[in-house]
């Protein structure tokens, strides 16, 4: 929904002109090639979504709005949504601030350096999320390495509360999702011709002007792609907040799982998922109205 919209050739109705046998054969071939993908999307995505939507309107006695009424009556729902979006926003922003310089250095370096830098970004990615969540727990707990180091250095008197709260959740989520920011950024930066910066400098632009007015705008497609990925993935993150939140973070994903595991309330879980989906859609619709993606991408 953030991709540049290209004019889609309107499918000609049967009335406008008759297809030649070659065109018919081509269309049949395209349809045949798309069938497996359409089938997968239909069975695994569209159908469950419809089923989920239907289920969210089912009360004990048939059709009911009771699951949605809970959003207005139960304050846990609202606070959970607010916390989830707050964490997603902070994680996305932090990933961008940390990921941009990494991707920049990787895109600018030569020889063996790009694979080394990207490798360092990717290696943790191949480790299980569960393992990394526990690793953060060990690092950040009351008597963990970070706290003891800070205490030994005399920087703090009492251990900081680094985990079992929103900070720990944010930290670990950021660590796990950082590659999703770095890789699209790197791909976008690699597409920027080096001669554009050379040209900018030759025309009198100092390093900051060249970066701000040439490099940064041309890397925005990567910024947008990476931010969308990280934001959306954080919204649905489950294991990490569950392990590192210590009950103080109660994200939407956990709300869904509680409804099913504890109360076996599939209708309530479905309604939460539907609302989350709609809110995400609304955010991106709003973003695409506010940010001129097409101009940024240079397609206009």
């Amino acid at each position: 929904m953030v991709r540049p919209r290209r004019p889609v050739p309107a499918a000609d109705g049967p009335m406008t002109h008759t297809l030649t046998p070659e065109e018919r054969r081509e269309r049949r071939l395209i349809l045949a090639l798309l069938t497996p993908a359409l089938a997968v999307v239909g069975v695994l995505l569209i159908a469950p979504l419809i089923w989920m939507g239907w289920q969210s309107f089912q009360g004990p006695d048939g059709f009911s709005l009771m699951h949605y009424q809970r959003f207005l009556t139960d304050s846990v729902y609202l606070s959970s949504f607010i916390q989830t979006f707050r964490i997603a926003f902070v994680v996305t922003l932090a990933a961008l601030l940390i990921g941009y310089p990494i991707a920049y250095v990787a895109a600018k370096s030569e020889g063996i350096w790009p694979p080394i830098i990207l490798g360092m970004v990717l290696v943790p990615f191949w480790t299980s999320v569960l393992v990394r969540a526990y690793a953060w727990l060990i690092l950040l707990q009351r008597r963990g390495i970070v706290n003891s180091a800070l205490q030994d250095l005399g920087l703090i008197d009492r251990p900081l509360l680094l985990v079992n709260n929103e900070f720990g959740t944010t930290m670990a989520t950021l660590h796990i999702l950082l590659p999703f920011m770095v890789l699209p950024l790197y791909a976008a930066m690699k597409k920027i011709p080096a001669e554009l910066e050379t040209a900018g400098a030759s025309l009198g632009g100092n390093g900051w002007l060249v970066f701000r007015s040439i490099y940064l705008p041309l890397s925005l497609p990567g910024v947008i792609a990476g931010s969308v990925l990280v934001f959306v993935l954080t919204l649905g993150f489950y294991i990490t907040p569950e392990l590192l939140g210590g009950g103080r973070t109660f994200l939407v994903s956990m709300l869904v799982s509680r409804n099913i595991e504890l109360y076996n309330e599939w209708g309530a879980a479905s309604s939460i998922s539907v609302v989350l989906l709609l809110v995400v859609f609304a955010i991106f619709r709003l973003a695409s109205m506010l940010i001129p993606f097409e101009r940024i991408m240079g397609t206009k």
């Binding site: 001669e195 554009l196 040209a199 900018g200 007015s213 041309l218 940024i296 240079g298």
Partner: peptide, 9 residues
């Protein structure tokens, strides 16, 4: 420059 190096944006 050879490929003009115009700023596409």
């Amino acid at each position: 420059f050879q490929n003009y190096a115009l700023f596409p944006h």
